[in-house]
Design a protein around this nucleic acid. Structure first.
Lengths: 233, 233
DNA sequence: CGCTCGTTTGAGGATGGTCAAGGCTGGTGG
DNA sequence: CCACCAGCCTTGACCATCCTCAAACGAGCG
């Protein structure tokens, strides 16, 4: 696997060549699912913790599939306030924009490996195979769904409900009652529209109410899922 | 034009027949833009103020284009809290879901006319013409964009900034400094994640600061756009 | 062992919510 | 044409939630 130059940003020149070669050589194949195509056309690249994957305003040259680790997608206001849009875990695809530039930024939360695929190659395929076009559309639609749910959380829920929603979302993704959180309290706060202190206090409160256990600050065990679900409104 | 039965909900039987007839008769035509197709395949239906257009959980049988009036798309939590996702004005398309059922509800804010089109007919066309598929994808992507921006507003902005963002959004849509608001203060509150009282107080504050004029409660004149933009962060 | 970074806890304060009352406006009917 | 009513909006007083500022704690690492 390739390792990204630390100086940051997206694929350095050698990777770009690899990605382009893969994109070019595989497009004549027979019909395959989007997942197979990404696997064939992509190159795996490693991003260190906190390294930028793409930035707001950059042209959307690549799409990415998380192989390992975790990614945060976010936007920052002039004065530094940050809103995190979502956390992306293995299997998730990011960077698919219908427009030609990225409207958000993406960073690795922890050291992560991503499959990087030339966006134009995928779009070309989509124009010829409606199943691919439909899969791309579905990804955007699922994204929309997720963000709409987050919107309800941000617009209408209190701190306790927000944290409960977050924990249930993470547990669902982990398919387990024990969750290893890759992100910091600050990340969680910026996702839920709270401060780091409020997130911390709410974790403590849920622990006191026996809803969760906190064997370590980044490890959460759901103890009373019903209680959390009730909080989820 | 057809007029909807007051008892509410979506197209009563006679309309469904009209819509299906239109959908069936026009699909053999030559290539056209999505807009032309909707125009050909749709039937215009009128919805009274506060009438439901579709409900959360219903199967997504139709897509809709607003011809006149205004529509709100929203979700309600168990205990009655409502989050409005967006307001849709003439030219906007709603009800395009990539999945088979609606995840939100839609209502007419004021008496409105909508073009109603059979979703399956549009999807069939999209499978054969990649330009149509691409246009559908773009609509979902623009929707995503809008909701992501709203998310920043809900997660990271204070009341003054939220109302400023709302007014700028409306002014942009109206392409004018004078805005006629079709929605109530309660609608605005449920869009911005505030209470009706806070919205009202914030309007008054902006009026006192000479940022806007309020010749009537539903008419806003932007007086100092720079001030509002600065608040928009 | 001691440092650093992230997390927790505490005290006090501000923003927006709640509850309550009064005002305006547009529509209806006398 | 005016009076009344209903729905919507505004304003006020008080209060709760969450934020801010500050300090201490603790786990991981050189």
């Amino acid at each position: 696997m390739l390792t990204q130059s630390e100086s940051g940003k997206i694929p350095a020149p050698p990777f770009i060549r690899t990605i382009e070669r893969n994109a070019a050589s595989k497009t004549t194949d027979q019909r395959r699912s989007l997942d197979e195509i990404l696997e064939l056309m992509g190159a795996k690249i490693e991003y260190d913790r906190n390294n930028e994957i793409y930035g707001e305003g950059e042209s959307a040259e690549f799409i990415y599939k998380v192989v390992s680790g975790a990614v945060r997608v976010y936007k920052i206001l002039d004065d530094g306030r940050r809103q995190i849009n979502g956390f992306y875990l293995p299997g998730d695809i990011i960077g698919i924009e219908a427009s030609s530039e990225h409207h958000f930024s993406a960073e690795a939360v922890v050291k992560s490996r991503l499959l990087v695929i030339k966006r134009s190659a995928v779009l070309t395929l989509a124009a010829r195979q409606s199943e691919i076009a439909s899969e791309l559309w579905s990804i955007t639609a699922r994204e929309l769904d997720h963000v709409q749910n987050l919107m309800i959380t941000l617009g209408r829920k209190n701190a306790l409900e927000r944290v409960a929603a977050f924990l249930l979302e993470m547990a669902k993704r982990a398919r387990s009652f024990t969750i290893e959180l890759p992100m910091s309290r600050q990340d969680i706060a910026d996702y839920l529209g709270l401060t780091i202190e409020t997130v911390s206090r709410t974790f403590t409160q849920l622990e006191n109410e026996q809803a969760i256990e906190l064997p370590a600050s980044r490890r959460v065990v759901l103890r009373n899922r019903n209680l959390l679900s009730r909080l989820n409104a």
